[in-house]
C-alpha cells in the first residue's frame, strides 16, 4: 500500500519549488559554501604532515584544551541555570516573570564585544565584582574563570529556549497521576519530567557548547591571551592570521569547523528525538 502510494505520488501541487530552491542554493553557495570551500581548499593545500604539525603543536594543543575545558564548564553551568530558568519561567506565576523571561534573550541581542567589555570591567580589580572576589583571592579576569564566564554569558539563551517549549507542552495530567500514586516531587521530576525534556535539554546544551567553542568577541577582552593558559583556539587562529601564517590559521579553523559540525549534527539528532517524543506524547 505505502510503496504503491509512494510510487504514484501526486505531482507537486504548490508552486515555487524551482524559485525557492534556486534562491536558497544560490545564496547558500555564494555566501556560505564557497567561502568555506576556500578554507577547506587552503587546508587541503597544506599537506597532511604540516597540517598535523600545526594542530598538534604545543600552542595549538593548549589552545584546544583551554577552549574545550572552558566551553565544557560553561555548558555545564548553562545546563543547570538554563534548566532552572526554564522551570521557573514555565511553572511559576510571579511578578516580574515577563521581564525575567525577556532578559534571557539579552546575551543573544547584545553584541559580544560589548558583553566582553562589560564583563571585563565588572570582574577586574576595580569593578563591582572583581574587587571583592580578588580580595577573597579569586582571580577571574585574565584567567580561566573569566573565559568560562564570557562563554557562559554568551550562550545563556540556548538551553532555556530549548527546554521552555517542551516544559510548556508537557501534559500536567501525567504529573498529577504520578503524584496521586504517591511519588515524591523529586521522583516526579526524575521519572516523569526529566525523560520528557532530556532530548531538548541535551540539544540545547550541544548548541550552547558549539557556540562557546567558537566565541571570540567576548572572550578576547577578558581572557588575557596567555599562551598555554588562557589562549583560546579561535584567538590562536586569529593570531596565526596576524602572523601571516595562513596555513596555520586554516588548520586550526578547520578543526574548529569539524567540532562545530559534529555538535550541530548531534543537536539535530537530539532535536529529532525531541520532536518524536512530543508527537508521541500527544
Amino acid at each position: 500500500m505505502t510503496t504503491a502510494s509512494a510510487r504514484i505520488r501526486p505531482k507537486r501541487v504548490l508552486p515555487g519549488f524551482t524559485l525557492s530552491l534556486g534562491t536558497t542554493l544560490l545564496y547558500l553557495t555564494v555566501i556560505i559554501l564557497i567561502p568555506i570551500a576556500a578554507l577547506v581548499l587552503t587546508g587541503a593545500g597544506i599537506g597532511w604532515e604540516r597540517f598535523l604539525r600545526f594542530v598538534t603543536s604545543n600552542s595549538a594543543l593548549n589552545a584546544f584544551r583551554v577552549t574545550l575545558v572552558a566551553a565544557g564548564i560553561a555548558t555545564l553551568i548553562n545546563a543547570f541555570y538554563g534548566l532552572l530558568m526554564a522551570w521557573v519561567l514555565t511553572r511559576y506565576e510571579f511578578r516580574g516573570r515577563v521581564i525575567l523571561d525577556g532578559l534571557m534573550d539579552i546575551p543573544f541581542a547584545l553584541p559580544t564585544a560589548v558583553a566582553g567589555l562589560a564583563l571585563t570591567a565588572l570582574f577586574s580589580a576595580n569593578g563591582w565584582f572583581g574587587g571583592p572576589l580578588e580580595a577573597a583571592g579569586f582571580q577571574v579576569v585574565y584567567a580561566l574563570p573569566g573565559i568560562i564566564i564570557a562563554m557562559a554569558f554568551t550562550s545563556i539563551p540556548f538551553v532555556v529556549r530549548a527546554v521552555q517549549p517542551v516544559l510548556e507542552d508537557l501534559d500536567p495530567a501525567i504529573e498529577e497521576a504520578a503524584k496521586t500514586l504517591g511519588a515524591t516531587p523529586w521522583q516526579v521530576f526524575y521519572r516523569v519530567i526529566l525523560p520528557a525534556i532530556l532530548p531538548a535539554w541535551l540539544g540545547g546544551c550541544t548548541v550552547s557548547m558549539a557556540r562557546s567553542l567558537g566565541e571570540f568577541g567576548a572572550v578576547v577582552f577578558i581572557a588575557g591571551n596567555l599562551p598555554g593558559q588562557t589562549e583560546i583556539a579561535s584567538l590562536l587562529a586569529f593570531i596565526r592570521i596576524e602572523e601571516d601564517n595562513y596555513a596555520g590559521a586554516a588548520a586550526i579553523a578547520l578543526v574548529l569547523l569539524c567540532m562545530a559540525l559534529l555538535l550541530l549534527l548531534l543537536s539535530n539528532l537530539f532535536q529529532i528525538r525531541a520532536a518524536r517524543y512530543r508527537e508521541g506524547g500527544k
Binding site: 536558497t24 576556500a38 581548499l41 548548541v207 558549539a210 579561535s234 579553523a253 549534527l265
Partner: peptide, 29 residues
Amino acid sequence: LMTLVEIPFSISPIIAGICYLLLYGRRGI
C-alpha cells in the same frame, strides 16, 4: 540543506572572516 543553512550559527565568526580572507584577499583564491 537544513544542516547547511545552520552552519554559520555554530561556527566561530572569526572563522567566517578567515574564509572570506582566503577567498577574496589579495593573495586569496
